[in-house]
Amino acid sequence: MSIAITIIGGYLGAGKTTLVNHLLQRAGVGSQYGRVAVLVNDFGDVNIDEALISEVSEDTIKLTNGCICCSLVEGLAMALDGLRQLEDPPERLVIETSGVADPTQLAAYAQIPGFHLDAIIVLADAETVRKRARDKYVGDLVRQQLAAADIVGLNKVDLVDTETADDLKRWLQGMIPGAVVVPVANAAIDPEVLFANTTPPRAGVVSDGPANTPPATVHHEQLFESFSWQSDRSLSRAELDRWLAELGDDVVRVKGFVTVSDQPETHLVVQRVGSRVNVHRSDQVLSGFSAELVLIRLKGATESPTWPC
């Protein structure tokens, strides 16, 4: 089982540690998203509810929900080497980068056997990001960081007016083609968006419902909306690729399982994070449907996305 890596990047003060704290504080994280390991730069800034802590050692904090929090004492390479040698490794790994790291460089670590990259989330401080991106010393770095993002978390939007937030969003989308910009306050990005734990709950069970169930809309939180489809009708591979490519830049996540008509024996796992698409084969039959997908997008658009069958 490969460990899914989520990289949290962004310049100093963008809200990375706040986001990590937010994740660790969610009591449900452990059960709902599998066991999560978090690699942080500094324990000193991590704020974990004492009731959640089961064991503390020099470089690791274990939580009662099975999650672990590790500091990067010996560097990322050694930390990952340690994780992949665990008998019972976590399902997910969140890496909080340093404020000067280029997430693209770190993404190389997600391709070590035993790991895979799930998403790169880069936080931007709505109050300062434009100034930082022009800074004499760090402008190039801040722009590199943003360009690496699958999802940009435009943080502290509550501290700027709506017009500024819209301006920033347009500016970011102009700078990063295909960027999905998620406005957020207090770096509180929903774990659902972060982890996309969209594994269909009834994998392998054939539904006895209608062949093409209409999209079910779930309004979770106030920011996002989810759509899901279960269908017994197949697309061709070309049609699938086109559908994935043409989704709007308000689509944050797509995940699911698809069998395409030109390769009926092959089961595909489909993921889109931001504008990055990953379709790979699965050895197992993961769904009783020809297509079973979940899509999360930012609220606001009036038109619902559709599955083209």
Binding site: Y11, L12, G99, V100, D102, Y137, V138, D140, L141, Q144
Partner: peptide
Amino acid sequence: HSGNGLWLIAPDQ
């Protein structure tokens, strides 16, 4: 190459 080198600590810090 991005054109310039790397910061290992943020200059603002």
